[in-house]
Structure formats: structure tokens, C-alpha cells
Simulated assay, not measured.
Amino acid sequence: MTLSMEPLPYIDEHSRPIDAPADAVWTALLKVLRREMGGSATFARLLGCDPAQGTAAFAGRPGETVPGFRVVEAEPGRRLALRGRHRFSSYALTFVLDGGRLRAQTHAAFPGVLGRLYRAAVIGTGGHRIMTRRLLRQVARAT
């Protein structure tokens, strides 16, 4: 599977104020992504994710991976764009640091009947919102 770079439909954005220097927020973001997503390789394989495995020494550089996501753009201290896909969805999660806030923007497409069912299970139940806000909280705590 190759990751397409075509635009995906907007899903949502969540943000959290973080009173810390951008480099500290960046370091915390990478640490949280390694810890929280690093253990999800089994789940990523079950869904048929591309990528399913993470980069051993994930440092947020383009081409590096955490299970389910590949870094497609990185501006340390400013922006980290992740992209992935699996059987039911193509998706992007972009973290933006600006003005003392960390924002997480999600875009995704859910093709076909199974995609629509997956969207209902993940987005419709609020599970995505809960997980995204949890990631942002963890980054704030880690700074």
C-alpha cells in the first residue's frame, strides 16, 4: 500500500493550551507518540494499516513511523503531519504548535459500506475525540 497525498475530508480539530517553549512541547509530543502509539502494532496489523510497524528510534522525521502513521511533514517546534491508511479509511493527523496552543487536526475518508460503518464506530461514538484529547492532555503533562 502506498499513501496517497490527495486531500482528505475534514473531520475535526482539538486544541489545548500549553505554557511551555515550543521545543519542550515538540519533545513531549514525540515522547507521547512513541509511548502511546508504539504499542499498537498488533492492532495496526489487524486493521491492515500502512504502516503497521513503527520506526525503532522514532524522532518525528519525514518517513519515520509509529504504528498506523507515517510522518509526511515535520517542522520541529511547529508542525508534525502524520498520514496512514487501512482497510476502512485513509487519514491524516496534524499537530500544530502556535501561540501557546497545541492543535490536533484530523482529516479522513471512509470509502464504501465498511468505511461508513467504521466511521460510525470511531467518529460517531466519540472515541476519536476522546483519544485525541487524551493525547493532547498527555503532551501537556509531559512538558
Rank of each mutant, 00 (worst) to 15 (best):
S15H: 13
L8F: 07
A56S: 13
R85C: 12
G60N: 04
R83P: 08
L82E: 03
L82W: 08
T125M: 08
L97F: 02
H107K: 11
G39I: 10
T94H: 01
G115A: 03
V66T: 13
I123C: 07
M37E: 11
R101A: 12
Y118W: 04
L3K: 09
E75L: 01
L80I: 03
A121S: 11
G115L: 05
R35W: 06
T2W: 06
T106E: 12
A28S: 12
F69Q: 05
R85I: 06
D23G: 04
A108S: 14
A20G: 07
A22R: 13
L8A: 09
Y10P: 05
R119H: 14
E6W: 03
W26V: 08
L93G: 00
L102H: 08
F88I: 05
E73Y: 03
R87A: 14
R61S: 12
A52V: 11
R87V: 08
R141H: 13
L117F: 11
A57L: 10
G112F: 06
F95Y: 15
L114E: 09
W26L: 03
G54S: 08
G63Y: 06
G112A: 07
P76I: 03
L47F: 14
P62C: 01
G100C: 07
M5F: 00
Q138P: 00
L3S: 08
R129N: 09
R16Q: 13
R134T: 13
G48E: 09
R61C: 03
V71K: 01
R85P: 02
V72Y: 00
M37F: 15
L30A: 04
E64M: 10
R85T: 11
P76M: 04
V122G: 04
Y10T: 05
V71P: 10
S90W: 06
L135P: 03
S90D: 14
V113M: 12
G115N: 01
G99F: 03
L93T: 10
I123P: 00
E36Q: 14
S89M: 14
S40C: 10
A108P: 01
D50I: 05
Y91C: 00
